[in-house]
Amino acid sequence: MYSEPEPDTAKRMRETHATAAAALGSTPVGPDEAWGWRGRTLSRAVSTPLGAGWLRLVCAPAEKAGGKLWEGPQEAERFMPPAVPRPRLRERLAWSDGDYGYLAELYDRVADRTVTTEEPILRAVPDLDEAWWSGLSTAVDAIAEVPTERVAVRQEYLDRAMPQYLGVSLDTTAPAWSTAHGDLHWANLTGPQLTLLDWEGWGAAPAGYDAALLHAYSLLVPETAAEVRRRLGHVLDIPAGRFAELVVITELLQTTTRGDNLELEKPLRGRLGHLLGQAP
């Protein structure tokens, strides 16, 4: 999903991934590696006595290891309905080693690749058929109906961040809440067979959040952004959905202040102007 991190981080993560694979009775196969943001995760295909698998290693500072992000995939395995296609979690192992905490998760192998391989942002029209888009709409609706006490986006964050990063005074009270995947972008979706990956952060968010996030990450490809709106317009083109777009724009504009998603800043501000009823 992301580029390889700094050499010291890459070396440590590779060594720890190999240790985790052995502990879970699996063997890495092939040269391909899937890195997370700044080397926070490393995933590889593995072979196991039960067949092909996928071993994902998560790292965090020891004092921050555990909690919601650690438990998300396990709870998704328990609560997500069959209408939400996802890799099945077989085993997990958590431990600490000095300054770092680690979580190894062994999943069934998903044969299809993610729509984008290096980053969440879409840069070309993907070759996705009717069944894929229909399945996405069904999955987004099914996730929204799952009862949960998990939280993906907090009202307190909206109260603080929306005026700061949108640059306007507005009512920051979310008009409706529903359950969201929480990180629905193109590097977490596979094709041509749809699978939703990365269930760390799912939980309650402003209604329409998943659709709004996928739409934002599609803005460099207007044709696909329009298709997202066409397929998920039932949650986007309503007041709650428009508010969710403002939430997502807030979050992504905040990332630009850290040097991430810089190419999205201009189209995000254009979309913001449209939502606020102003000229882009």
Rank of each mutant, 00 (worst) to 15 (best):
E75W: 06
A76L: 12
A76V: 12
E77M: 13
F79M: 09
M80K: 00
A83N: 03
A83F: 09
A83G: 07
A83I: 12
V84K: 02
P85E: 03
R86S: 11
R88F: 01
L89S: 08
R90A: 08
R90D: 06
R90Q: 12
R90L: 14
R90G: 06
E91M: 12
S96N: 15
S96A: 13
D99L: 13
Y100F: 15
Y100V: 05
G101R: 05
G101I: 07
G101N: 07
Y102D: 00
E105Q: 15
Y107T: 02
Y107K: 03
D108Q: 10
R109Y: 05
R109C: 11
V110G: 04
D112M: 08
D112I: 06
D112Y: 13
T114D: 07
V115D: 01
T116C: 08
T116R: 11
T116I: 07
T116F: 03
T116Y: 03
T117I: 03
T117S: 15
E118S: 15
E118P: 00
E119R: 14
P120S: 06
I121T: 15
I121D: 09
L122Y: 08
R123K: 12
A124G: 06
A124H: 13
D127H: 11
L128C: 14
L128E: 06
L128V: 06
L128H: 04
D129F: 04
E130H: 12
W132G: 09
W133F: 14
S134E: 15
S134F: 01
L136N: 08
L136H: 09
A139T: 06
V140E: 02
D141Q: 14
D141P: 00
A142D: 10
I143G: 01
A144Q: 00
E145H: 12
V146W: 06
T148G: 06
T148K: 08
E149L: 10
E149H: 13
E149Q: 15
R150N: 08
V151Y: 03
A152F: 05
A152S: 15
V153Q: 11
R154F: 04
R154A: 13
Q155F: 00
Q155N: 10
E156K: 07
E156F: 00
E156Y: 03
E156M: 01
E156C: 02
Y157P: 00
L158H: 03
A161R: 15
A161C: 09
P163K: 10
Q164R: 15
L166K: 13
G167N: 05
V168Q: 14
V168H: 08
S169I: 07
T173N: 03
A174L: 07
P175M: 09
A176I: 04
W177F: 07
S178E: 14
S178R: 14
T179F: 04
A180Q: 08
A180W: 08
H181V: 02
H181E: 02
G182K: 10
G182R: 11
D183E: 14
D183G: 09
L184M: 11
H185Q: 09
W186V: 10
N188S: 08
N188D: 11
L189I: 02
T190V: 08
T190A: 03
T190H: 06
D198H: 10
D198N: 14
W199Y: 04
E200S: 13
G201R: 13
W202N: 04
G203N: 06
A204D: 01
A204T: 04
P206F: 02
P206G: 05
A207Q: 13
A207N: 00
Y209W: 13
Y209I: 07
D210E: 05
D210Y: 04
A211P: 01
